[in-house]
Design a protein around this nucleic acid. Structure first.
Length: 488
RNA sequence: GCCCCGUUCGUCUAGCGGUCUUGGACACCGCCCUCUCAAGGCGGAGAUCACGGGUUCGAAUCCCGUACGGGGUACCA
C-alpha cells in the first residue's frame, strides 16, 4: 500500500503571488484534494534580502481569495513545522552533519575566483564545466585541520562515480535520464553555514514526507541533483511532476509588459476568483478536451496529474475575460446583487443601508447588468445613472442621437406617458412600445433618444427596465430637462 | 560548450498505431433574434499535426536526426 499523498506549494516571498505560482498551487491543491491527500503550504524565505513579511501575507491572501485552502502551514500549523525555511536551520544543520558523517559531503576550500576561472577554462575546452573536484580528495585530517584553523569553506555533495544515470520519474514527461557524469559536486552549505536551495528544499521535502513534488519546469534540471541528496539522506524519493511555463502573448516570459502578472492585480481588474481559478487550471490541464467550465468542486474531484500537458502555454487574456463573463452570468441574482452593491458602496454611490433596504430592487437590477459585462469593474459605469440626481450627456450622444430628426418629438410624446402611466414594467412596456408606430419613426430613433435622456449614454441596460428602476420622478425630470435644452 | 525539456488551427487544448480528409473552446467572419450594448441560436473560415528520414499493412501518435524555442550548468530560488 502506498503512503498517503502529501504535496506542498513552497513560494518564496520575494514578490506577490503571480499567475504561474498560482497555477502551481492550484495543481498541488487539486491533486491533494482529488486523492484525499494533504496539501502543505511552506514559505521558502531563505533569501533575506528579498523576502518580506508583506509579500508573505499577500501570498496567503491571494491563495485564500482563489479559494485554495491548505492543511498545514502558516496560520494552520501542523505536525511537520515549522513551515518557514528561516525557522528550519536546525534541520539543515543536522542533515548536513548526517551527510558528513556518512561521507557523502566534503569540505571545499576553493575560492569563488578560482572556481570562476576553472569554469571558464572548462567551458572553453568544451564538455563538462562543473566543479573539478579539487578538494574532494583532501584527506580528512588535513581538511579538519584547515577548518579548525578557520579557513573558509563550503560543503559539497560527493557524487559517486559508480552510480548509473539518475532517472527522474516525471509524471508529466515520463522518465528522463541524466548521465551521472553531467552532475557535479554542487554546494550544499555555503561558507556562512546556510544551506543552498537544492539542499534545503530536499531536507524539507524529506522531513515533511512529501510524496509528490509538483512544481515549475525550471526545476527539472535540478531534480537529479536533488534526488542524489534524497538518497544520501535516506529519504524515499518523491515522484515529480514538472509544469511547463506560462508565457506572455509574444511567447516571452510573462512580465509586467503583458499586463498583470499578480493574482491581486486580476482581482483589482474585476476578475472573479472562480474564473481565474478555472482559467489557470485549464492552462496546461484538461478534463476531457471538451469541457471549458471546470469549477473548484470539479477540480477537487476530477483533477489528475496524468492529464497535465507538457507544452508551455501562452496566457490568453481574452479567453480569461470570456470565462469571467460566463461566471458573472451564471451567478445567482442575489449573489451578483450583493457584489454589485459592494462596488457601489465603494464608489460612494449608495450606502450599505440603501442596499439592505432595497434588496429586492437590486436583485431585479442584477441580471440586467450581469448579462452584459465581462469584468466587475464595468458595473459602476453601467448603473451609475440610477444613483445620481442628474445625468451628464456627452457630446457624442447629443449630436448622434438627441439632435437627430425625430428625437425631440419622441421625447415630447413619451413625457406624458411617463407622467401618467401606471408604474409597472408591464404597463410601461405596453405604453412605450407602440411609440415608433404612432410617430412613424424607426424604433431605434425613438428609443435611443429616450435612452440618452434617461441614462446619459447610448449604451445601457434595457430601456424600459432602466426607466422603471429609475422611478417616475427622476425619469420625468430627465426627459423634461433634455426637452428644455433642445428647445433653447 | 555540455546536460535536459518542448513543438497539433492566431491562442488554450483533445488525440496515447487504424474509428482523424485532426474534435472542442476563445478570438475572428456571416446570418438570426433585437429599444442600445451584450447574451443567446445557427453557420463559416482557420492546422500540409515544426522539418527530414526510418519502423509498420497502416503514424499526429513509435524511433533517429535537423531546425526553432525554453530550462539547467551559481556559495539565486
Amino acid at each position: 500500500m502506498s503512503k498517503p499523498v502529501r504535496v506542498r506549494f513552497a513560494p518564496s516571498p520575494t514578490g506577490t503571488l503571480h499567475v504561474g505560482g498560482a497555477r502551481t498551487a492550484i495543481y498541488n491543491w487539486a491533486f491533494a484534494r482529488s486523492v484525499g491527500g494533504t496539501f502543505v503550504l511552506r514559505i521558502d524565505d531563505t533569501d533575506p534580502e528579498r523576502s518580506t513579511q508583506e509579500n508573505t501575507e499577500q501570498i496567503l491572501r491571494s491563495l485564500e481569495w482563489l479559494g485554495i485552502d491548505w492543511d498545514e502551514g502558516p496560520l494552520k500549523g501542523g505536525d511537520f513545522g515549522p513551515y518557514f525555511q528561516t525557522q528550519r536551520g536546525e534541520s539543515y544543520k543536522a542533515a548536513l552533519q548526517k551527510m558528513i558523517d556518512a561521507g557523502s559531503a566534503y569540505p571545499c576550500f576553493c575560492t569563488a575566483e578560482e572556481l570562476a576561472e576553472k569554469r571558464e577554462a572548462a567551458r572553453k575546452k568544451g564538455g563538462f564545466s562543473g566543479y573539478d573536484r579539487t578538494c574532494r580528495d583532501i584527506d580528512p585530517e588535513t581538511a579538519a585541520a584547515r577548518i579548525a584553523a578557520g579557513e573558509p569553506h563550503v560543503w559539497r555533495l560527493k557524487v559517486s562515480d559508480d552510480r548509473g544515470p539518475v532517472v527522474v520519474d516525471d509524471i508529466v514527461r515520463g522518465a528522463t535520464e541524466f548521465p551521472i557524469t553531467a552532475l557535479d559536486d554542487f554546494v550544499l552549505a555555503r561558507s556562512d553555514g546556510t544551506p543552498t536551495y537544492n539542499f534545503a528544499t530536499v531536507v524539507d521535502d524529506g522531513e515533511m514526507e512529501m510524496t509528490h513534488i509538483i512544481r515549475g519546469d525550471d526545476h527539472l534540471a535540478n531534480t537529479p541533483r536533488q534526488i542524489l541528496v534524497f538518497e544520501a539522506l535516506g529519504y524515499d524519493v518523491p515522484r515529480f511532476a514538472h509544469l511547463s511555463m506560462i508565457w506572455g502573448e509574444d511567447g516571452k516570459k510573462l512580465s509586467k509588459r503583458h499586463g498583470a502578472t499578480s493574482v491581486e492585480a486580476y482581482a483589482e481588474m474585476g476578475y472573479l476568483p472562480e474564473s481565474l481559478l478555472n482559467y489557470l487550471a485549464l492552462l496546461g490541464w484538461s478534463l476531457d478536451g471538451e469541457t471549458t467550465i471546470v469549477t473548484a468542486d470539479v477540480l477537487k474531484k476530477e483533477f489528475s496529474l496524468e492529464r497535465i500537458s507538457k507544452n508551455p502555454a501562452i496566457f490568453d487574456m481574452q479567453k480569461l475575460e470570456w470565462m469571467n463573463g460566463t461566471y458573472i452570468r451564471d451567478m445567482a441574482a442575489e449573489d451578483f446583487a450583493a457584489r454589485m452593491a459592494a462596488l457601489l458602496v465603494d464608489a460612494e454611490l449608495i450606502s450599505e443601508e440603501d442596499f439592505e433596504n432595497q434588496r429586492a430592487w437590486f436583485v431585479e437590477l442584477a441580471p440586467l447588468v450581469s448579462e452584459r459585462i465581462k469584468l466587475m469593474t464595468e458595473v459602476v459605469p453601467m448603473v451609475s445613472f440610477l444613483f445620481t440626481d442628474t445625468v451628464e450627456i456627452d457630446e457624442k450622444s447629443r449630436t448622434k442621437v438627441l439632435e437627430k430628426e425625430g428625437a425631440l418629438e419622441s421625447l415630447k410624446t413619451a413625457l406624458p406617458i411617463l407622467e401618467s402611466c401606471e408604474w409597472t414594467l408591464e404597463a410601461l412596456d405596453g405604453a412605450l412600445h407602440t411609440l415608433p408606430e404612432t410617430l412613424e419613426l424607426k424604433p431605434r430613433v425613438v428609443f435611443q433618444a429616450l435612452r440618452v435622456a434617461i441614462t446619459g449614454t447610448m449604451v445601457s441596460p434595457p430601456l424600459f427596465e432602466s426607466i422603471f428602476l429609475l422611478e417616475r420622478d427622476r425619469s420625468v425630470e430627465r426627459v423634461k430637462a433634455v426637452i428644455a435644452s433642445l428647445e433653447s
